Amino acid sequence: MEKLLEVKDLHVSFQTYSGEVQAVRGVSFDVKKGETVAIVGESGCGKSVTAQTIIKLIPMPPGEIKQGSILFNEKEIVTKSKKEMFEIRGKEIGMIFQDPMTSLNPTMKVGNQIREGLIKHQRMSPRAATERAIELLKLVEIPQPEKRINQYPHEFSGGMRQRAMIAIALACNPKLLIADEPTTALDVTIQAQILKLMKNIQKKMGTSIILITHDLGVVADLCDRIVVMYAGKVVEQGTKREIFKNPQHPYTKGLLRSIPRLDQEKETSLIPIFGTPPDLISPPDGCGFCERCDDAMNICKLEDAELHQVSETHQSRCWLLHPMAQGVES
């Protein structure tokens, strides 16, 4: 399958009064056409910064892309100017932000916010843009779209605001849709509806999706591949089946132990991951998960492991996979 997006050795830092925060440290992954890839990890692991860097939404300064490459449709994103990125954002890459209440403009009607991108990028007339906006509200299953198009965000419920955000992101038929924790502020029932909606839209439009989330349970039905991040690095990536059935990194195993499982016959208690992530102003020389890992060895403190190839599609950054670590017990 042809690659739509390819991120290679991406390093992103932020200059603060306390020092340089190394938010993203050598992240590499790719997204194929029509594929859904989830980037998972706890808060502060760098997943949202990675997503926003793809469309250059991080403020620079204090943010800075230190090194790396972002190829979208074989075109380099890192070197593009603000004017060039304006043509890509919304038109070729759409984004659903984490909190629709703060992402939507409270002073503009929802219809105007959808029409804005259509008029700028697609050069539509106001009448054609209005008709397309109504179609998009129907696509995201908002009832009475002809009426809702003239309402303000505060007149929408939380789930409807998220649907409106999806409509804005899809307005120009982007090739790639980035969804940054699109279900975090919603209750479980609405979460399921939004995820089902995104799945149906992908089938209809063939859009590639990057789903950013801290909840592995959310991605179980929606995603094809999963990228697990910790302390600014990719610690494991593979197909959905490989990550759920055969996790190799201790952090991935910890995430799976800390969520309820319906595929196990015996009822087991949830086990939290104790401790806190490392300070990325002065990240450790070794494995970032070392201090929280029950299987840590001396080498883990001194040097970080390379990504070991578990299978053709499965990689894990752990010293336990090194040939010299065979037979090591917890």
Rank of each mutant, 00 (worst) to 15 (best):
S125H: 10
Y251R: 03
L176G: 09
G94K: 03
T16G: 13
K47D: 03
T252C: 05
L280A: 00
S43P: 01
P272I: 08
L262M: 12
L5W: 09
V234W: 00
R225M: 05
A192R: 13
S28W: 06
F86C: 06
N73S: 15
E20H: 14
I119F: 11
V228S: 00
F289L: 10
I226W: 04
E131L: 12
E20W: 07
I299V: 10
T16W: 14
G90R: 13
S103N: 15
M229W: 08
E267D: 05
P143V: 11
P126W: 07
R163T: 06
C293K: 06
N150G: 11
I168P: 06
G217E: 13
L302K: 12
S316K: 07
K120M: 10
M108R: 10
F289W: 02
K233N: 09
I209L: 07
L104F: 08
H249Q: 11
T79V: 09
I55C: 04
I259L: 11
L5K: 12
T313V: 15
K245D: 14
L136E: 10
E267Y: 04
G63V: 04
V31S: 02
E329W: 12
I194V: 11
D221W: 00
P106C: 09
A128C: 03
I209N: 00
G286Q: 04
E131G: 11
M95Y: 04
K66N: 13
M165Y: 02
N200D: 13
Q202E: 14
T53H: 03
I134A: 14
L177Q: 10
P283T: 05
D221R: 15
V227H: 08
P61Q: 07
Q248E: 08
M101R: 13
Q162K: 03
I178P: 03
S48I: 08
M160W: 01
I271D: 12
C45R: 05
V49D: 08
S157G: 11
T313P: 11
Q144G: 01
E141G: 01
K175T: 08
F289R: 02
C223F: 02
K301S: 14
Q326K: 13
D295T: 15
C287T: 01
I226V: 15
I271K: 12
V228K: 01
H11Q: 10
G68P: 03
I178S: 07
E76M: 03
G34K: 01
K245L: 13
N246M: 05
M95T: 01
Q193L: 08
T276P: 00
F97Y: 05
A192E: 06
A133N: 02
E146I: 00
P250F: 05
P62G: 11
T107G: 00
K3L: 14
D294P: 04
S69A: 07
K66C: 02
K175D: 15
G41P: 06
D30N: 05
P247A: 02
L170E: 04
